[in-house]
Design a protein around this nucleic acid. Structure first.
Length: 490
RNA sequence: CGGGGCGUAGCUCAGCCUGGUAGAGCACUAGCUUUGGGAGCUAGGGGUCGAGAGUUCGAAUCCCUCCGCCCCGACCA
Protein backbone atom coordinates (compact mmCIF):
# COMPACT_ATOMS: atom_id res chain seq x y z
CA UNK A 1 0.00 0.00 0.00
CA UNK A 2 2.85 2.31 0.72
CA UNK A 3 4.42 1.57 -2.64
CA UNK A 4 1.10 2.27 -4.31
CA UNK A 5 1.13 5.68 -2.62
CA UNK A 6 -2.29 5.13 -1.06
CA UNK A 7 -1.72 5.66 2.66
CA UNK A 8 0.79 5.44 5.44
CA UNK A 9 0.76 4.80 9.15
CA UNK A 10 0.61 7.82 11.43
CA UNK A 11 1.92 8.81 14.86
CA UNK A 12 -1.45 7.76 16.21
CA UNK A 13 -1.64 4.02 16.66
CA UNK A 14 -4.08 2.43 14.28
CA UNK A 15 -4.92 5.68 12.53
CA UNK A 16 -3.71 6.16 8.97
CA UNK A 17 -2.82 9.10 6.79
CA UNK A 18 -4.65 8.72 3.51
CA UNK A 19 -2.47 10.20 0.76
CA UNK A 20 -3.76 12.03 -2.31
CA UNK A 21 -3.91 8.95 -4.53
CA UNK A 22 -5.71 6.90 -1.87
CA UNK A 23 -8.07 9.73 -1.01
CA UNK A 24 -8.73 10.21 -4.71
CA UNK A 25 -9.94 6.62 -4.87
CA UNK A 26 -12.18 7.28 -1.85
CA UNK A 27 -13.62 10.37 -3.55
CA UNK A 28 -14.48 8.42 -6.69
CA UNK A 29 -16.09 5.70 -4.66
CA UNK A 30 -17.87 8.15 -2.41
CA UNK A 31 -19.26 10.23 -5.28
CA UNK A 32 -20.86 7.30 -7.04
CA UNK A 33 -22.23 5.65 -3.91
CA UNK A 34 -23.65 8.99 -2.78
CA UNK A 35 -25.39 9.28 -6.12
CA UNK A 36 -26.90 5.81 -5.73
CA UNK A 37 -27.99 6.47 -2.13
CA UNK A 38 -29.74 9.66 -3.22
CA UNK A 39 -31.27 7.89 -6.22
CA UNK A 40 -33.01 5.55 -3.77
CA UNK A 41 -34.61 8.48 -1.99
CA UNK A 42 -32.24 9.20 0.88
CA UNK A 43 -31.00 12.61 2.01
CA UNK A 44 -27.70 13.52 3.61
CA UNK A 45 -27.41 15.03 7.11
CA UNK A 46 -24.65 15.56 9.58
CA UNK A 47 -24.77 14.62 13.25
CA UNK A 48 -22.25 15.37 16.03
CA UNK A 49 -19.01 13.47 16.49
CA UNK A 50 -19.61 13.33 20.25
CA UNK A 51 -22.38 11.33 21.82
CA UNK A 52 -23.48 11.73 25.45
CA UNK A 53 -22.54 8.60 27.35
CA UNK A 54 -26.12 8.15 28.54
CA UNK A 55 -27.33 7.82 24.91
CA UNK A 56 -25.12 4.81 24.30
CA UNK A 57 -26.49 3.15 27.43
CA UNK A 58 -30.07 3.21 26.14
CA UNK A 59 -29.96 0.05 24.08
CA UNK A 60 -28.59 -2.82 26.22
CA UNK A 61 -27.10 -5.03 23.50
CA UNK A 62 -25.73 -2.00 21.72
CA UNK A 63 -23.71 -0.90 24.77
CA UNK A 64 -22.37 -4.37 25.32
CA UNK A 65 -21.25 -4.65 21.73
CA UNK A 66 -19.36 -1.39 21.61
CA UNK A 67 -18.31 -0.69 25.21
CA UNK A 68 -14.89 -2.27 24.82
CA UNK A 69 -13.82 -0.13 21.90
CA UNK A 70 -14.98 3.32 22.84
CA UNK A 71 -12.90 6.49 22.95
CA UNK A 72 -14.16 8.70 25.78
CA UNK A 73 -13.83 12.46 26.26
CA UNK A 74 -13.71 13.37 29.94
CA UNK A 75 -12.15 16.86 30.04
CA UNK A 76 -12.37 20.05 28.03
CA UNK A 77 -9.17 21.81 29.00
CA UNK A 78 -5.47 21.13 29.55
CA UNK A 79 -3.35 22.50 32.34
CA UNK A 80 0.37 22.60 33.00
CA UNK A 81 0.79 20.63 36.23
CA UNK A 82 4.36 20.05 37.48
CA UNK A 83 5.72 20.83 34.04
CA UNK A 84 3.45 18.32 32.31
CA UNK A 85 0.52 19.26 30.14
CA UNK A 86 -2.46 17.23 31.34
CA UNK A 87 -6.24 17.33 31.64
CA UNK A 88 -7.29 20.04 34.08
CA UNK A 89 -9.15 18.37 36.98
CA UNK A 90 -11.28 21.50 37.22
CA UNK A 91 -12.43 20.99 33.65
CA UNK A 92 -13.88 17.54 34.08
CA UNK A 93 -17.09 16.98 32.11
CA UNK A 94 -20.17 16.29 34.16
CA UNK A 95 -21.23 13.67 31.66
CA UNK A 96 -18.45 12.09 29.58
CA UNK A 97 -18.86 12.13 25.80
CA UNK A 98 -17.99 9.18 23.63
CA UNK A 99 -16.57 9.57 20.17
CA UNK A 100 -19.14 7.93 17.90
CA UNK A 101 -18.39 4.32 16.97
CA UNK A 102 -21.65 4.49 14.96
CA UNK A 103 -24.55 6.91 15.24
CA UNK A 104 -27.75 4.94 15.89
CA UNK A 105 -28.24 6.58 19.26
CA UNK A 106 -27.67 10.22 18.40
CA UNK A 107 -29.59 9.94 15.14
CA UNK A 108 -32.35 8.04 16.94
CA UNK A 109 -32.59 10.94 19.37
CA UNK A 110 -33.20 13.29 16.45
CA UNK A 111 -35.68 10.84 14.91
CA UNK A 112 -37.71 10.82 18.13
CA UNK A 113 -38.24 14.55 17.63
CA UNK A 114 -38.68 14.43 13.86
CA UNK A 115 -41.27 11.68 13.74
CA UNK A 116 -44.77 12.52 14.92
CA UNK A 117 -47.17 11.26 12.31
CA UNK A 118 -47.30 8.46 9.74
CA UNK A 119 -46.99 11.33 7.28
CA UNK A 120 -43.39 11.86 8.47
CA UNK A 121 -42.51 8.34 7.36
CA UNK A 122 -40.50 6.83 5.91
CA UNK A 123 -37.62 8.93 7.17
CA UNK A 124 -34.62 8.20 4.98
CA UNK A 125 -31.32 9.70 6.18
CA UNK A 126 -27.66 9.13 5.35
CA UNK A 127 -24.51 10.68 6.70
CA UNK A 128 -20.89 10.64 5.54
CA UNK A 129 -18.63 10.76 8.57
CA UNK A 130 -15.62 9.51 10.45
CA UNK A 131 -16.09 7.10 13.33
CA UNK A 132 -13.74 5.70 15.96
CA UNK A 133 -13.53 2.14 17.20
CA UNK A 134 -10.62 1.34 19.49
CA UNK A 135 -9.65 -1.96 17.91
CA UNK A 136 -7.06 -4.24 19.46
CA UNK A 137 -5.27 -4.99 16.24
CA UNK A 138 -5.47 -2.34 13.57
CA UNK A 139 -4.57 -2.95 9.94
CA UNK A 140 -4.19 -0.28 7.27
CA UNK A 141 -7.53 0.31 5.48
CA UNK A 142 -9.07 -2.95 6.76
CA UNK A 143 -9.37 -2.10 10.43
CA UNK A 144 -8.22 1.37 11.46
CA UNK A 145 -9.01 3.07 14.74
CA UNK A 146 -10.61 5.94 12.87
CA UNK A 147 -12.27 5.31 9.54
CA UNK A 148 -14.43 7.10 7.01
CA UNK A 149 -17.80 5.69 6.11
CA UNK A 150 -21.40 6.38 5.29
CA UNK A 151 -24.14 5.30 7.62
CA UNK A 152 -27.74 5.23 6.53
CA UNK A 153 -30.50 5.40 9.12
CA UNK A 154 -34.15 5.03 8.30
CA UNK A 155 -37.44 4.82 10.15
CA UNK A 156 -40.58 3.15 8.81
CA UNK A 157 -44.22 2.66 9.73
CA UNK A 158 -44.21 -1.09 9.23
CA UNK A 159 -41.89 -4.02 9.69
CA UNK A 160 -42.40 -5.10 6.06
CA UNK A 161 -41.31 -1.70 4.80
CA UNK A 162 -38.21 -1.67 7.05
CA UNK A 163 -37.20 -5.16 5.94
CA UNK A 164 -37.70 -4.10 2.33
CA UNK A 165 -35.44 -1.09 2.93
CA UNK A 166 -32.78 -3.31 4.52
CA UNK A 167 -32.78 -5.58 1.49
CA UNK A 168 -32.88 -2.70 -0.97
CA UNK A 169 -29.70 -1.17 0.49
CA UNK A 170 -27.99 -4.55 0.60
CA UNK A 171 -28.67 -4.75 -3.11
CA UNK A 172 -27.35 -1.21 -3.64
CA UNK A 173 -24.12 -2.33 -1.98
CA UNK A 174 -23.93 -5.55 -3.96
CA UNK A 175 -24.37 -3.87 -7.31
CA UNK A 176 -22.08 -0.99 -6.39
CA UNK A 177 -19.30 -3.35 -5.27
CA UNK A 178 -19.66 -5.48 -8.36
CA UNK A 179 -20.06 -2.92 -11.11
CA UNK A 180 -18.13 -0.01 -9.72
CA UNK A 181 -15.36 -1.63 -7.66
CA UNK A 182 -15.15 -4.83 -9.74
CA UNK A 183 -15.50 -6.65 -6.43
CA UNK A 184 -17.61 -9.80 -6.71
CA UNK A 185 -19.47 -10.47 -3.46
CA UNK A 186 -21.91 -12.85 -1.86
CA UNK A 187 -24.91 -11.14 -0.31
CA UNK A 188 -26.52 -12.94 2.58
CA UNK A 189 -27.71 -12.95 6.15
CA UNK A 190 -25.31 -13.05 9.09
CA UNK A 191 -25.93 -15.73 11.73
CA UNK A 192 -27.34 -14.65 15.09
CA UNK A 193 -23.92 -14.53 16.76
CA UNK A 194 -22.51 -12.15 14.13
CA UNK A 195 -25.37 -9.67 14.24
CA UNK A 196 -24.88 -5.97 14.78
CA UNK A 197 -25.39 -5.28 18.51
CA UNK A 198 -29.07 -4.50 18.88
CA UNK A 199 -30.17 -5.68 15.43
CA UNK A 200 -32.98 -8.09 14.65
CA UNK A 201 -31.25 -9.21 11.45
CA UNK A 202 -27.91 -8.32 9.85
CA UNK A 203 -27.08 -8.80 6.19
CA UNK A 204 -23.68 -8.48 4.60
CA UNK A 205 -21.81 -8.61 1.36
CA UNK A 206 -18.72 -10.79 1.63
CA UNK A 207 -15.76 -10.55 -0.73
CA UNK A 208 -12.94 -13.05 -1.20
CA UNK A 209 -9.39 -11.72 -1.06
CA UNK A 210 -6.54 -13.25 -3.07
CA UNK A 211 -5.49 -15.39 -0.11
CA UNK A 212 -9.00 -16.80 0.15
CA UNK A 213 -9.88 -14.89 3.29
CA UNK A 214 -13.28 -13.25 3.53
CA UNK A 215 -13.78 -9.54 3.93
CA UNK A 216 -17.09 -8.18 5.17
CA UNK A 217 -17.43 -5.35 2.70
CA UNK A 218 -20.75 -3.85 3.73
CA UNK A 219 -23.64 -4.43 6.12
CA UNK A 220 -27.34 -3.66 6.24
CA UNK A 221 -29.31 -4.11 9.46
CA UNK A 222 -32.98 -4.51 10.19
CA UNK A 223 -33.30 -3.12 13.71
CA UNK A 224 -36.94 -3.90 14.35
CA UNK A 225 -38.34 -1.69 17.08
CA UNK A 226 -35.33 -2.17 19.44
CA UNK A 227 -33.87 1.26 18.95
CA UNK A 228 -37.26 2.91 18.56
CA UNK A 229 -38.32 1.54 21.95
CA UNK A 230 -35.03 2.53 23.56
CA UNK A 231 -35.25 6.01 22.14
CA UNK A 232 -38.94 6.61 21.93
CA UNK A 233 -39.32 6.92 18.17
CA UNK A 234 -43.11 6.80 17.83
CA UNK A 235 -45.74 7.93 15.35
CA UNK A 236 -49.49 8.22 15.24
CA UNK A 237 -50.98 6.08 12.50
CA UNK A 238 -54.02 6.97 10.39
CA UNK A 239 -56.43 5.89 13.12
CA UNK A 240 -54.56 7.80 15.84
CA UNK A 241 -52.78 4.89 17.55
CA UNK A 242 -49.29 5.60 18.88
CA UNK A 243 -46.85 3.02 17.46
CA UNK A 244 -43.10 2.41 17.54
CA UNK A 245 -41.23 2.77 14.25
CA UNK A 246 -39.21 0.00 12.67
CA UNK A 247 -35.71 1.25 11.89
CA UNK A 248 -32.77 0.19 9.74
CA UNK A 249 -29.13 1.12 9.43
CA UNK A 250 -26.52 0.28 6.82
CA UNK A 251 -22.93 1.25 6.08
CA UNK A 252 -19.79 0.80 4.05
CA UNK A 253 -16.39 2.24 4.86
CA UNK A 254 -12.85 2.91 3.69
CA UNK A 255 -12.44 -0.83 4.20
CA UNK A 256 -13.78 -1.14 0.65
CA UNK A 257 -10.51 0.36 -0.57
CA UNK A 258 -8.63 -2.32 1.32
CA UNK A 259 -10.83 -4.86 -0.42
CA UNK A 260 -10.04 -3.40 -3.83
CA UNK A 261 -6.31 -3.46 -3.10
CA UNK A 262 -6.32 -7.02 -1.84
CA UNK A 263 -8.54 -8.29 -4.63
CA UNK A 264 -6.89 -6.66 -7.62
CA UNK A 265 -3.26 -6.11 -6.61
CA UNK A 266 -0.46 -8.07 -8.25
CA UNK A 267 3.33 -8.36 -7.84
CA UNK A 268 3.85 -5.02 -9.59
CA UNK A 269 1.53 -3.15 -7.22
CA UNK A 270 -2.06 -2.04 -7.32
CA UNK A 271 -4.47 -2.48 -10.23
CA UNK A 272 -7.35 -0.05 -9.94
CA UNK A 273 -10.72 -0.63 -11.58
CA UNK A 274 -11.02 2.27 -14.07
CA UNK A 275 -14.34 3.38 -12.58
CA UNK A 276 -12.63 4.44 -9.34
CA UNK A 277 -9.14 5.30 -10.58
CA UNK A 278 -8.53 9.00 -9.82
CA UNK A 279 -6.67 9.07 -13.16
CA UNK A 280 -7.80 6.55 -15.70
CA UNK A 281 -5.21 7.39 -18.32
CA UNK A 282 -1.80 8.82 -17.45
CA UNK A 283 0.40 10.22 -20.19
CA UNK A 284 4.12 10.00 -19.49
CA UNK A 285 6.17 12.06 -21.92
CA UNK A 286 9.56 10.46 -22.53
CA UNK A 287 11.68 13.56 -22.23
CA UNK A 288 15.44 13.77 -22.53
CA UNK A 289 16.44 17.39 -22.01
CA UNK A 290 16.71 17.90 -25.76
CA UNK A 291 15.10 20.44 -28.10
CA UNK A 292 12.55 17.93 -29.41
CA UNK A 293 11.10 17.70 -25.88
CA UNK A 294 8.95 20.72 -26.66
CA UNK A 295 7.24 18.90 -29.53
CA UNK A 296 6.69 15.82 -27.41
CA UNK A 297 5.11 17.93 -24.67
CA UNK A 298 2.88 19.81 -27.09
CA UNK A 299 1.72 16.52 -28.61
CA UNK A 300 1.00 15.10 -25.14
CA UNK A 301 -0.92 18.19 -24.09
CA UNK A 302 -3.22 18.00 -27.06
CA UNK A 303 -3.64 14.27 -26.48
CA UNK A 304 -4.66 14.78 -22.84
CA UNK A 305 -7.02 17.59 -23.84
CA UNK A 306 -8.69 15.30 -26.39
CA UNK A 307 -8.90 12.43 -23.89
CA UNK A 308 -10.43 14.70 -21.26
CA UNK A 309 -13.21 15.49 -23.71
CA UNK A 310 -14.24 11.83 -23.90
CA UNK A 311 -16.65 10.21 -21.51
CA UNK A 312 -16.53 6.79 -19.91
CA UNK A 313 -18.86 5.08 -17.38
CA UNK A 314 -21.17 8.06 -17.88
CA UNK A 315 -18.60 10.59 -16.67
CA UNK A 316 -15.82 12.72 -18.19
CA UNK A 317 -12.68 10.66 -18.71
CA UNK A 318 -9.97 11.46 -16.16
CA UNK A 319 -6.60 11.88 -17.88
CA UNK A 320 -3.35 13.32 -16.59
CA UNK A 321 -0.16 14.56 -18.21
CA UNK A 322 2.63 13.79 -15.76
CA UNK A 323 5.12 16.61 -16.02
CA UNK A 324 6.92 15.98 -12.76
CA UNK A 325 10.62 16.58 -13.16
CA UNK A 326 11.88 13.06 -12.57
CA UNK A 327 13.18 10.45 -14.95
CA UNK A 328 10.52 9.27 -17.36
CA UNK A 329 11.21 5.58 -16.86
CA UNK A 330 10.82 5.96 -13.12
CA UNK A 331 7.65 7.98 -13.56
CA UNK A 332 6.17 5.20 -15.62
CA UNK A 333 6.82 2.66 -12.85
CA UNK A 334 5.30 4.87 -10.23
CA UNK A 335 2.05 4.79 -12.19
CA UNK A 336 2.29 1.03 -12.57
CA UNK A 337 2.60 0.69 -8.81
CA UNK A 338 -0.29 3.04 -8.20
CA UNK A 339 -2.43 1.04 -10.57
CA UNK A 340 -3.38 3.60 -13.21
CA UNK A 341 -5.39 1.52 -15.73
CA UNK A 342 -3.74 2.85 -18.91
CA UNK A 343 -0.27 4.34 -19.04
CA UNK A 344 0.77 6.09 -22.24
CA UNK A 345 4.47 6.48 -23.03
CA UNK A 346 4.96 9.13 -25.63
CA UNK A 347 8.38 9.69 -27.20
CA UNK A 348 9.60 11.85 -30.10
CA UNK A 349 8.84 9.10 -32.60
CA UNK A 350 5.20 8.87 -31.43
CA UNK A 351 4.85 12.62 -31.55
CA UNK A 352 6.30 12.82 -35.06
CA UNK A 353 4.30 9.87 -36.39
CA UNK A 354 0.99 10.71 -34.69
CA UNK A 355 1.05 7.52 -32.67
CA UNK A 356 0.36 6.36 -29.15
CA UNK A 357 2.29 3.71 -27.23
CA UNK A 358 0.58 2.36 -24.15
CA UNK A 359 0.57 -0.28 -21.41
CA UNK A 360 -2.50 -1.93 -19.91
CA UNK A 361 -2.18 -2.24 -16.17
CA UNK A 362 -4.49 -5.27 -16.02
CA UNK A 363 -2.26 -7.36 -18.28
CA UNK A 364 1.07 -5.66 -17.91
CA UNK A 365 3.42 -8.47 -18.73
CA UNK A 366 4.06 -11.14 -21.28
CA UNK A 367 6.27 -13.47 -19.30
CA UNK A 368 8.94 -11.25 -17.81
CA UNK A 369 8.58 -8.62 -20.47
CA UNK A 370 6.36 -5.57 -20.19
CA UNK A 371 3.85 -5.43 -23.03
CA UNK A 372 3.93 -2.20 -24.96
CA UNK A 373 1.15 -1.68 -27.48
CA UNK A 374 1.10 0.91 -30.26
CA UNK A 375 -1.65 2.40 -32.41
CA UNK A 376 -2.45 5.64 -34.16
CA UNK A 377 -3.59 8.65 -32.17
CA UNK A 378 -6.89 8.69 -34.03
CA UNK A 379 -7.59 5.04 -33.33
CA UNK A 380 -6.76 5.50 -29.65
CA UNK A 381 -8.97 8.53 -29.23
CA UNK A 382 -11.92 7.37 -31.28
CA UNK A 383 -12.01 3.78 -30.22
CA UNK A 384 -9.36 2.31 -27.95
CA UNK A 385 -9.35 4.64 -24.94
CA UNK A 386 -12.96 4.16 -23.87
CA UNK A 387 -13.15 0.58 -25.07
CA UNK A 388 -10.02 -0.47 -23.17
CA UNK A 389 -11.12 1.14 -19.92
CA UNK A 390 -14.41 -0.73 -20.10
CA UNK A 391 -12.55 -3.92 -20.98
CA UNK A 392 -10.18 -3.52 -18.01
CA UNK A 393 -13.09 -2.87 -15.66
CA UNK A 394 -14.88 -6.02 -16.82
CA UNK A 395 -11.68 -8.03 -16.93
CA UNK A 396 -10.78 -7.28 -13.33
CA UNK A 397 -14.28 -8.25 -12.26
CA UNK A 398 -14.25 -11.45 -14.29
CA UNK A 399 -10.90 -12.50 -12.88
CA UNK A 400 -12.01 -11.98 -9.28
CA UNK A 401 -15.41 -13.57 -9.96
CA UNK A 402 -13.78 -16.69 -11.36
CA UNK A 403 -11.62 -16.95 -8.24
CA UNK A 404 -14.63 -16.53 -5.97
CA UNK A 405 -16.73 -19.09 -7.82
CA UNK A 406 -13.93 -21.62 -8.03
CA UNK A 407 -13.22 -21.43 -4.31
CA UNK A 408 -16.66 -21.77 -2.80
CA UNK A 409 -16.69 -25.47 -2.19
CA UNK A 410 -19.86 -27.50 -1.78
CA UNK A 411 -20.28 -31.13 -0.87
CA UNK A 412 -18.62 -31.24 2.53
CA UNK A 413 -21.16 -32.87 4.84
CA UNK A 414 -19.26 -33.69 8.02
CA UNK A 415 -16.84 -32.02 10.42
CA UNK A 416 -13.98 -34.30 9.38
CA UNK A 417 -14.35 -32.87 5.87
CA UNK A 418 -14.10 -29.32 7.24
CA UNK A 419 -10.99 -30.23 9.23
CA UNK A 420 -9.44 -31.89 6.21
CA UNK A 421 -10.02 -28.84 4.03
CA UNK A 422 -8.69 -26.27 6.50
CA UNK A 423 -5.86 -28.30 8.04
CA UNK A 424 -2.22 -27.90 7.14
CA UNK A 425 -0.25 -24.75 6.39
CA UNK A 426 -2.14 -21.75 7.73
CA UNK A 427 -0.73 -19.47 5.08
CA UNK A 428 -1.84 -21.67 2.22
CA UNK A 429 -4.78 -20.53 0.14
CA UNK A 430 -8.11 -21.71 1.55
CA UNK A 431 -11.43 -20.76 0.08
CA UNK A 432 -14.84 -21.06 1.68
CA UNK A 433 -17.02 -24.06 2.31
CA UNK A 434 -20.73 -23.95 1.61
CA UNK A 435 -22.38 -26.25 4.11
CA UNK A 436 -25.86 -27.10 5.26
CA UNK A 437 -26.98 -26.41 8.82
CA UNK A 438 -30.06 -26.42 11.02
CA UNK A 439 -29.70 -22.77 12.03
CA UNK A 440 -29.14 -23.48 15.73
CA UNK A 441 -29.31 -20.66 18.25
CA UNK A 442 -28.33 -19.94 21.84
CA UNK A 443 -26.00 -22.47 23.47
CA UNK A 444 -26.14 -24.77 20.46
CA UNK A 445 -24.90 -21.94 18.24
CA UNK A 446 -22.19 -21.04 20.78
CA UNK A 447 -20.90 -24.59 20.52
CA UNK A 448 -20.73 -24.29 16.73
CA UNK A 449 -18.93 -20.98 17.03
CA UNK A 450 -16.34 -22.46 19.42
CA UNK A 451 -15.79 -25.45 17.21
CA UNK A 452 -15.18 -23.23 14.19
CA UNK A 453 -12.88 -20.99 16.20
CA UNK A 454 -10.53 -23.93 16.72
CA UNK A 455 -9.80 -23.78 12.99
CA UNK A 456 -9.90 -19.96 12.96
CA UNK A 457 -13.12 -20.12 11.00
CA UNK A 458 -16.23 -17.99 11.13
CA UNK A 459 -19.62 -18.17 9.52
CA UNK A 460 -19.60 -15.51 6.83
CA UNK A 461 -23.26 -15.49 5.87
CA UNK A 462 -26.18 -17.48 4.56
CA UNK A 463 -26.37 -16.50 0.88
CA UNK A 464 -29.63 -15.00 -0.28
CA UNK A 465 -29.96 -17.58 -3.01
CA UNK A 466 -30.63 -20.97 -1.44
CA UNK A 467 -31.32 -24.41 -2.91
CA UNK A 468 -34.69 -26.18 -2.61
CA UNK A 469 -33.51 -28.98 -0.35
CA UNK A 470 -30.76 -29.40 2.22
CA UNK A 471 -28.37 -32.03 3.50
CA UNK A 472 -28.53 -32.73 7.25
CA UNK A 473 -26.88 -30.11 9.48
CA UNK A 474 -23.10 -30.53 9.48
CA UNK A 475 -22.92 -29.53 13.14
CA UNK A 476 -25.99 -31.01 14.81
CA UNK A 477 -27.10 -33.77 12.46
CA UNK A 478 -30.61 -32.31 12.55
CA UNK A 479 -32.47 -31.62 9.29
CA UNK A 480 -30.77 -28.82 7.36
CA UNK A 481 -32.73 -25.61 6.73
CA UNK A 482 -30.13 -23.31 5.19
CA UNK A 483 -26.74 -23.21 3.48
CA UNK A 484 -24.01 -21.07 5.02
CA UNK A 485 -20.51 -20.06 4.01
CA UNK A 486 -17.65 -20.71 6.41
CA UNK A 487 -14.11 -19.48 5.99
CA UNK A 488 -11.28 -17.47 7.45
CA UNK A 489 -11.79 -13.75 7.61
CA UNK A 490 -10.00 -10.44 8.03
C1' C B 1 -4.21 -7.94 29.06
C1' G B 2 -1.01 -12.89 28.33
C1' G B 3 3.28 -15.16 25.08
C1' G B 4 7.34 -13.94 21.57
C1' G B 5 10.37 -10.32 18.82
C1' C B 6 12.32 -5.46 17.81
C1' G B 7 13.64 0.09 18.37
C1' U B 8 20.76 2.68 14.82
C1' A B 9 20.06 7.96 8.32
C1' G B 10 13.64 9.09 4.84
C1' C B 11 13.30 3.27 4.06
C1' U B 12 15.48 -1.89 4.83
C1' C B 13 19.12 -3.27 7.98
C1' A B 14 24.65 -4.42 9.73
C1' G B 15 27.56 -3.11 14.14
C1' C B 16 26.15 -4.95 20.27
C1' C B 17 28.26 -11.24 22.35
C1' U B 18 34.37 -9.76 23.06
C1' G B 19 32.89 -1.10 25.40
C1' G B 20 37.46 2.99 22.24
C1' U B 21 33.35 7.95 19.99
C1' A B 22 28.71 5.69 13.24
C1' G B 23 28.32 1.91 8.60
C1' A B 24 25.95 -0.52 3.93
C1' G B 25 22.14 -0.78 0.16
C1' C B 26 18.03 1.98 -1.62
C1' A B 27 16.20 7.06 -1.57
C1' C B 28 17.97 12.41 -1.74
C1' U B 29 21.52 16.66 -3.96
C1' A B 30 25.23 18.09 -7.83
C1' G B 31 28.24 17.11 -12.17
C1' C B 32 29.47 14.12 -16.36
C1' U B 33 28.09 10.08 -19.56
C1' U B 34 23.94 7.22 -21.28
C1' U B 35 18.78 6.55 -22.80
C1' G B 36 12.35 3.76 -27.40
C1' G B 37 12.18 2.82 -21.87
C1' G B 38 12.56 0.33 -14.08
C1' A B 39 20.73 3.42 -16.43
C1' G B 40 26.22 4.14 -15.12
C1' C B 41 30.30 6.72 -12.86
C1' U B 42 32.10 10.46 -9.49
C1' A B 43 31.40 13.74 -5.54
C1' G B 44 28.13 15.17 -1.59
C1' G B 45 24.06 16.12 2.24
C1' G B 46 21.70 13.61 6.11
C1' G B 47 22.09 10.14 12.54
C1' U B 48 21.77 13.79 20.36
C1' C B 49 22.09 4.99 17.86
C1' G B 50 13.64 5.21 21.33
C1' A B 51 13.91 8.02 26.48
C1' G B 52 15.96 8.41 31.38
C1' A B 53 19.18 6.84 35.17
C1' G B 54 23.62 3.73 36.33
C1' U B 55 28.67 1.11 35.80
C1' U B 56 33.25 2.97 33.39
C1' C B 57 38.75 7.17 31.90
C1' G B 58 35.29 6.08 27.84
C1' A B 59 28.54 3.27 26.33
C1' A B 60 24.89 2.23 20.10
C1' U B 61 27.49 -1.86 22.73
C1' C B 62 27.14 -3.81 29.79
C1' C B 63 23.07 -3.16 33.98
C1' C B 64 18.20 -1.05 35.55
C1' U B 65 13.56 1.58 34.65
C1' C B 66 10.22 3.57 31.28
C1' C B 67 8.10 4.47 26.35
C1' G B 68 6.90 2.86 21.49
C1' C B 69 6.29 -0.63 17.49
C1' C B 70 5.57 -5.60 15.17
C1' C B 71 3.85 -10.84 15.33
C1' C B 72 0.66 -14.75 17.89
C1' G B 73 -4.18 -15.08 21.13
C1' A B 74 -9.22 -12.51 23.22
C1' C B 75 -12.29 -7.81 19.96
C1' C B 76 -13.92 -6.15 15.06
C1' A B 77 -16.84 -2.28 9.25
Amino acid sequence: MRDADMAETSPVRGAMVIKPWGYGVWEQLQQELDRRIKATGHENCYFPLFIPLSFIAKEAEHVEGFAKEMAVVTHHRLKNIDGKLQPDPAAKLEEPLVVRPTSETIIGDAFSRWVRSHRDLPLLINQWANVVRWEMRPRLFLRTTEFLWQEGHTAHASQEEAVEETMKMLEVYRSFAEDWLALPVIAGEKPENERFPGAEATYSIEAMMQDGKALQAGTSHFLGTHFAEAQNIKFQDDVGTLTFCNTTSWGVSTRLIGGVIMTHGDDDGLRLPPAIAPRQIVVVPMLRDKPEDAEVLAYCESLVAALSGLSVFGQPLRALLDTKKIKSAEKRWNWVRRGAPLILEIGPRDAAGGNVTFMRRDSLRDGDKVKSIACSRAEFLEEKAVQLLAEIQHGLYAEAKARLDANIISGVTDWAGVEAYFSGDEDAFKGWLKVSWSRPSGAELDAVEQKLKGLKLTIRNAPLSQPDSFAPCLFTGKPGVEEILIGRAY
